[in-house]
Amino acid sequence: MTNKTIYNAERALYLDLLERVHYHPIVNEWLAALPEWLAAIKDKQRYAHAPAYLAAVEKLPQIDVHSVDLDTDTITIQADLSEAEYKQITALMKQLMPWRKGPFQIGSGVEGDRHTVFIDTEWHSDWKWQRIAPHLVADHGTLEGRYVLDVGGGSGYHGWRMAGAGAKQVIIIDPSCLFYHQFMAIRHFVGAADNNRTHYIPVGLEALPRQSQLFDVVFCMGVLYHRPSPFEHLQQLKGQLVKGGQLVLETLVVEGDDTTVLVPHNRYAKMNNVYFLPSVAALTGWLNKVGFTEVRCVDIDITSVEEQRATEWMTYQSLSDFLDPSDSSKTIEGYPAPMRATLIATK
């Protein structure tokens, strides 16, 4: 039987958007662009690895899934795997390495059951979710029934958690060909357990209509410091929100007052695409300047080498390699070590 995971997922996305056209004509612009968006991510001229990623997803076996838990630290697909299924799933999922955001588990998870695939990702993304979740949607205290956009969602881990928290619809966007196929691999096993409420569009924020105003909550985590024009990015985020909607913004920050902004001269923690690291006070001012209100910082956390590290599923360098070996409070370039803040703001 042909694996129709991606076809079914893209069809469900189209139907979900079509359902909203009557109330939000702007969705016609999304629908018009959707075929090009979805075709581009599979274009081997643009993404050399796209055929291999697609083949890995298509070869995943059909298994008897007992239950799916999206509201737990490890996204869990409960199933009794045979040894052959375990080996096949492990080999195919490893063709989609590196896995950066997770973790995920496919199998029974029963202690002593060696036929469980545990994808131990570079990031303990569950730790970030634990820090953020208690502060979501100040007026409601929950994502229940909300339309949500996750900008730069990677493999989709946090998007699945948003669905698990009761969101009516989650749309994850990220232009990465690898991350798109990682999401589809997990979608293969999740099936319709989320009632097809969780979708993935492989584009960056700049591809969306600037004033869609479709979402009650927009998440943007780990993206802002990669944008050379942060004010434009914040305006684009604001344009996706309904009036009264909320932005959940998580980004790298530095200590300082409302005028403090670090601009790395070359690399920051070995990343060459880091542009602006503001203080919390400066970032609050930025959000106010573009028209957000009720801006509040709900979490500040220094990233630890336990939260971000190399694993069997991400074998490249990680945080410990990016820090000064003689002073872990600094990056290898001498800048302050990664510190992340989460701010929530209202449109």
Rank of each mutant, 00 (worst) to 15 (best):
I75P: 01
A55T: 13
A50P: 15
E58P: 09
Q78W: 04
L92R: 04
S67I: 00
D64R: 07
S82R: 08
L60I: 06
H66E: 14
L92I: 04
A52I: 14
H66K: 14
Y47A: 11
V68K: 12
T72F: 05
R46E: 09
T76L: 14
E83V: 08
D80F: 07
L54C: 08
A48H: 09
E85K: 12
Q45G: 13
L54K: 09
I75N: 01
L92E: 04
A91M: 04
L70S: 03
D73H: 12
E58H: 11
K44S: 05
S67N: 13
P61H: 01
T90Q: 07
V65M: 03
D80Y: 01
D64Y: 00
E85D: 13
A84V: 08
L92N: 05
L70Q: 11
Q45K: 12
D69M: 07
E58W: 14
A48M: 06
I63F: 04
K42Y: 01
D43G: 06
A91Q: 10
K87N: 00
L92H: 11
D64F: 04
T72P: 03
T74Q: 06
V68Y: 00
A56D: 09
S82L: 12
H49N: 14
I77L: 13
A48T: 14
L81D: 00
V68N: 13
I77H: 08
P61D: 11
Q45N: 15
K42E: 11
E85A: 01
D69F: 02
T90P: 04
D43C: 07
V65N: 03
L60C: 04
S82C: 03
L81K: 07
A50F: 03
Y53F: 15
I63A: 09
A52M: 13
Y86G: 15
A50Q: 08
V68A: 10
L92M: 01
Q62V: 13
P51I: 04
Q78Y: 03
D73M: 07
D71N: 12
H66P: 01
H66F: 03
L60Y: 00
L54V: 04
Q62H: 15
D64V: 05
V65H: 06
L81C: 03
K42P: 02
T76E: 00
D69T: 14
P61Q: 05
H49R: 10
Q88D: 05
D64A: 15
Y53P: 06
R46C: 01
K59N: 10
Q78V: 11
D71A: 11
D80C: 02
E85Q: 15
L81I: 00
D64P: 03
A91Y: 03
D43L: 11
Y47G: 07
K44M: 14
A79P: 05
H66L: 11
D71S: 11
A48C: 02
H49T: 09
D71Q: 13
P51D: 06
D80A: 14
T76R: 12
A91C: 07
K87C: 01
T90F: 02
T74P: 05
S67E: 10
A79T: 09
A48L: 06
